[in-house]
């Protein structure tokens, strides 16, 4: 039974990491920009939920889903700010400049939250109430199931948008050849802003979900972006299913491998595994869907 329980927990944790990663992949697919403020965007989503929950009179526990629209709007605005301040002004300059402007943006968010909310861990309301569901001896918290469902939904929706819709084609066109896209009448700035707003709103949703399950502190961003980056690269730069698989791989090590060795050893083995994968597949597990390298 423990095996099944561990498997469920690993999938829930992997889904949480995948949620963090997909907003990053979306921005990557639409602009090639590497947004290192993405981890902080997740944290900002968590604190947006904490702040919105505080507006509600004390004692009345409201489910997170009521807060979700507010969190999405706030983090979408944050995404617009990242695009407008840290990406658009230097869009045509060396991509490494964007690494640093987004890192700087992350520093601002982290320390702004630390000053405004304090450093204590906080928790946000669960999406659809707390409690657990027992099934065949395996216990699943409602929040874990909500995370898995949301991750599946958003990954599916994003895959559909990127591959099947006009918007997805416009995203790809902008990423692969901005000049050609402009010549075809695509409004580059508008598409960029949209991608950042959407990607950061995804981060906000992830933040809301993670803040209940695992709490949120202002300094969490660095750890989250680290995991998202590993997931995205190891899966194949820009590949959506690659990022999801990469997230599951990390969770497998953190839950599965850790349960038979120890946490520090499991972490070390994860990095060894990453190096071995790159040795065998220098372009990630699924390879690159298109040329997106910055």
């Amino acid at each position: 039974m423990l095996g099944a329980q561990l498997a469920l927990n690993a999938v829930a944790l992997g889904a949480a990491y995948a949620l963090v990663a997909i907003g990053f992949v979306l921005v990557l697919n639409a602009t090639t920009a590497v947004n290192f403020a993405h981890g902080e965007s997740v944290v900002a989503g968590g604190f947006a939920a904490v702040a919105l929950a505080m507006l509600v009179p004390a004692g009345s526990a409201i489910p997170g889903i009521i807060l979700l629209p507010g969190v999405l709007v706030l983090t979408a605005l944050l995404g617009l700010a990242i695009a407008a301040l840290a990406y658009l002004p230097i869009r045509n300059r060396p991509p490494v400049s964007v690494f640093v402007t987004t890192i700087a943006f992350g520093i601002i968010v982290t320390n702004g939250l630390n000053a405004a909310f304090g450093a204590a861990p906080r928790t946000a309301p669960a999406l659809l109430g707390t409690g657990t569901i027992e099934f065949l001896g395996v216990t699943a918290s409602r929040q874990s199931l909500a995370i898995i469902a949301t991750a599946a939904l958003l990954i599916g929706a994003l895959a559909f948008v990127l591959q099947r819709t006009q918007l997805g084609r416009q995203f790809r066109a902008c990423a692969q050849d901005p000049e050609m896209a402009r010549a075809l009448g695509i409004r580059l700035t508008r598409i960029t802003l949209l991608a950042f707003a959407l990607g950061t709103a995804f981060a906000g949703a992830a933040g809301l979900l993670l803040a209940h399950q695992f709490f949120v502190t202002p300094s969490d961003g660095a750890g989250l972006i680290l995991k998202a980056y590993i997931a995205v690269v190891i899966g194949g730069w820009g590949s959506l299913r690659g990022a999801a698989l990469g997230a599951m791989l990390i969770a497998f090590f953190e839950v599965g491998v850790a349960s038979v060795s120890s946490q520090p050893l499991a972490e070390g083995l994860l990095y060894v595994a990453v190096l071995l994968v790159l040795l065998v597949r220098p372009d990630g597990i699924f390879g690159e869907p298109q040329r997106l390298r910055a």
Binding site: L85, P89, I90, T101, I103, A104, F105, I107, I108
Partner: peptide, 9 residues
């Protein structure tokens, strides 16, 4: 952070 951002932009 603000100054860093400004300098790189």
């Amino acid at each position: 952070g603000v100054l860093l951002l400004a300098m790189v932009v």
